[in-house]
């Protein structure tokens, strides 16, 4: 496996920008509020690096994570993560509620799972379109826990396709993260599919 080239990273950024754009309009429609999303950065790095990256800035704060296991030409676990406080803010802005409780209620947890599901599905269907691939995946699961608990996997050798997303709604701008955790074989398959896609575009 070689590192992804700049061109390949750009192609991925493009794919994810389209995906989050699609999910933003789906969410706008659902909530009747303008929602915009963009992807400033796409990065490929070892899982340990992601843990380091998310740990210091967020401190002891927990993450809210919606994850779906996926299977296709590349396989693994896809996650959408927000700092716990941001996730509270997002779901309350979207539901238009003002619950003064510092924890996610049952309904809010379900709503967040759906928000994650919409965003992750949009990513999968855009990737599938572009790379002419199909994916199967599980229903979303919601976890609220520390970075370590969420990302500490038994096989620590895994690589993560890590994507920062910027979500804006009602004059608030919030940061979240998409992470696709995959084994090295999957990573090579992804790179191969990307090359095929880029050759197709250039040819």
């Amino acid at each position: 496996m070689h590192d992804l080239t700049v061109l390949e990273l750009d192609a991925l950024a493009e794919i994810f920008n389209i995906s989050v754009g699609r999910s933003a309009s789906a969410l706008s429609e659902l909530t009747q509020e303008p929602v915009t999303m963009s992807v400033p950065v796409v990065h490929v790095m070892p899982i340990q690096r992601v843990i380091e990256l998310l740990s210091p800035g967020i401190g002891a704060e927990r993450l809210t994570c919606v994850s779906q296991m996926f299977n296709g030409s590349f396989a693994g676990e896809a996650m959408l993560m927000f700092p716990e406080n941001s996730s509270l803010e997002i779901v309350r802005l979207m539901l238009g509620s003002q619950v003064p409780i510092e924890q996610l209620s049952e309904i809010e947890q379900d709503a967040l799972s759906e928000i994650g599901n919409i965003i992750l599905n949009a990513c999968f269907s855009t990737i599938a379109d572009m790379l002419q691939d199909t994916f199967s995946c599980d229903l979303p699961e919601l976890t609220v826990a520390s970075v370590d608990e969420i990302l500490q996997k038994p096989e620590s050798e895994q690589t993560v396709l890590f994507i920062q997303i910027q979500l804006a709604l009602e004059s608030r701008s919030l940061e979240g993260y998409l992470a696709f955790i995959m084994g090295s074989e999957s990573e090579a398959n992804l790179q191969q599919a990307l090359r095929g896609f880029l050759n197709g575009v250039q040819g």
Partner: peptide, 24 residues
């Protein structure tokens, strides 16, 4: 509507969906 889109996504792209009572 969202339910239609979810069914379409399941049948065409093979992706599962969750419709929560908070949002729908």
């Amino acid at each position: 509507r969202r339910i239609h889109q979810a069914v379409e996504q399941a049948l065409k792209t093979g992706l599962p969906s969750l419709l929560s009572p908070g949002l729908n």
